[in-house]
């Protein structure tokens, strides 16, 4: 029935139509509903799957590197904090380490953000999507 509905709408739209136009529209609608052949390689779906797998592997590798960097950063910052605490009373060492404190603080913030982003926000969001 859709074909007729479409034709009626089209005829109403075409103000200059006559009886012959209505017949032409009938013929046109018949042709428009014929699907044009298109070539899709049979292995298309497996190509997409292979690409997805490769992408996931790359992402997993990147995540591992980021996580390793984050852990290294935490360990490094912890070590530096212990250094600062242990150097209380030794004025010379304390001053030299204290100069780098803003850099360490920034590194710590970045590391904390990375950990939060990777372990809490991203995974949590995915779990929400999955309805877990």
């Amino acid at each position: 029935m859709k074909q007729h509905k479409g034709i009626r709408e089209q005829i109403d739209f075409d103000a200059s139509r006559d009886k012959q136009d209505e017949e032409l529209y009938e013929l046109l609608f018949e042709q428009l509903e014929k699907e044009k052949e298109i070539t899709i390689h049979p292995s298309f779906s497996s190509t997409v799957m292979d690409k997805l797998k490769a992408k996931h592997k790359k992402e997993a590798r990147k995540d591992t590197i980021m996580f390793a960097l984050a852990i290294t950063g935490v360990l490094f910052f912890s070590f530096m904090t212990l250094q600062v605490i242990s150097s209380f009373g030794k004025s010379e060492s304390f001053v030299s380490i204290g100069m780098f404190m803003p850099v360490f603080a920034l590194a710590a913030l970045l590391v904390t953000f990375q950990l939060l982003d990777h372990n809490l926000i991203r995974k949590k969001r995915i779990k929400q999507h999955l309805g877990i």
Partner: peptide
């Protein structure tokens, strides 16, 4: 949609 069909109908008329 309407314009496309009208254009095609005009061309089809020549073919017929």
């Amino acid at each position: 949609l309407f314009r496309a069909r009208k254009l095609l109908k005009e061309e089809l008329s020549k073919y017929m």
